[in-house]
Nucleic acid binder design. Structure first.
Lengths: 222, 222
DNA sequence: GCGTGACTTGAACGCTTGTCCAAGTCAAGC
DNA sequence: GCTTGACTTGGACAAGCGTTCAAGTCACGC
């Protein structure tokens, strides 16, 4: 194989690992399979990574980062909340459903991380990333549609991630695109019902009037 | 080891497999580890099961069945919907949170099933069971609280399973009992908001006035 | 041009895995 | 009591795994 600086080779191996694991599952991503996918001999992997675990951590980090939302800023400002949320949510869903293997891999990574100490940080990193991303999207929605939410953004972000996870998992199992989209868009409509119009001239940060010390026993609109 | 008819030995091995896999993860449930857990020598496992895959399928079947809801019939009839749902949902959550390893195992089984052909039917069986159980619980709630739902029971059951899955997964990762319970109970409150009181004397089956051919683009109450 | 050191190679090692099997053991029926 | 057959045992096997390493190769700076 062509010579390559180690940093570049690492990136290539991470991509190869991602390809194998997305296609055939995390257990199929053996050191040998990754080397073969990259067109590289076995020893190279351990030249670039101390462990197999280090390769897996790097792969998890890569898939976490490339799952961050994109194309948010194309939403026309001033549109109705329902439209903004619908566009955002269905965009997110299509990104997920077009990468079935990668989505399944994220769940495999989560469960693996919860079982083996060497991958301890992987799952929580995944979820911290997802929650932060969801919060970012929600704030973006607030800004674009001039609304705030009846629930603190961080709490709502957790709900968003949970619901998307749940519907994704069900879709991975039964492959029912219609039911999945219906569920996700239904949740989008519910989200829209939580939005409270922002009176012009008020502060633009969402839901600051909520008492953060109060327990939120309900996520339904007041 | 004491002699035992093969059917009984199978049950014992399934229990042992469940114990190992719940405690240490599905990958730790090797034939040897299961045999050791059962206090039985290696060959016994292949005397009782053709394959390791057959043992895994049997284990999946067992955990699916023991996850069915119980204690539903203790709900006092005639109680307010919100109370009935709250009791049901928090009971369900405590059952989950007291069996962390088993809950994690169900996700490991789902992802494994989606990757290896020998376990093909496992995941869909799991979810068919969950959806049916959720629908059963919802119908029970309808009967106990004298309500119907604004959404077809089967659609709502899918939502329930998705939301519970999502919050469970997040809880497995970050261990935040408070956030999980808040999320789950918030969803319960949302569910209660979907309930429509049943006028006395009307038919007792829920939501039959919904046009099943119409696409449900929203799960928010009309 | 010529080292020098970064990069590559593939054989080898020890370990674990699922599966098989010949031999052993024991309870039940005649 | 003996025979039969269901049940048990644990060693053996091949395959695959992560990891190591001595040897080879090539590009780059002097």
């Amino acid at each position: 194989m062509n010579r390559m600086p180690v940093a570049e080779r690492r990136e290539q191996l991470i991509e190869a690992a991602l390809a194998v694991a997305s296609r055939d599952g995390i257990d199929a991503a053996t050191v040998r399979a990754v080397a073969a996918e990259a067109g590289v001999s076995l020893g190279v992997v351990h030249y670039c990574f101390q462990d197999k675990a280090e390769l897996m951590r790097a792969m998890a980090h890569a898939i976490t980062q490339q799952n961050l939302p994109s194309g948010l800023d194309q939403i026309p400002p001033g549109a109705p909340v329902a439209d903004v949320i619908h566009a955002t949510v269905s965009g997110l869903w299509h990104a997920i459903s077009e990468a079935r293997g990668a989505q399944l891999l994220t769940y495999e990574l989560t469960t693996s991380s919860l079982r083996q100490a060497e991958l301890k940080e992987v799952a929580i990193e995944q979820y911290r990333g997802s929650w932060a991303a969801a919060a970012g999207v929600l704030e973006h929605v607030c800004a674009a549609a001039q609304v705030r939410f009846a629930i603190p953004i961080d709490d709502l972000a957790r709900v968003v991630v949970a619901v998307v996870d749940g519907f994704s998992l069900a879709w991975l199992v039964d492959g029912d695109d219609v039911a999945a989209l219906r569920g996700i868009e239904g949740f989008g409509a519910y989200l829209a019902s939580l939005a409270i119009p922002l009176e012009p001239g008020a502060a633009d940060s969402g839901s600051t009037d909520d008492d953060p010390s109060a327990a939120h026993s309900s996520v339904t609109p007041a």
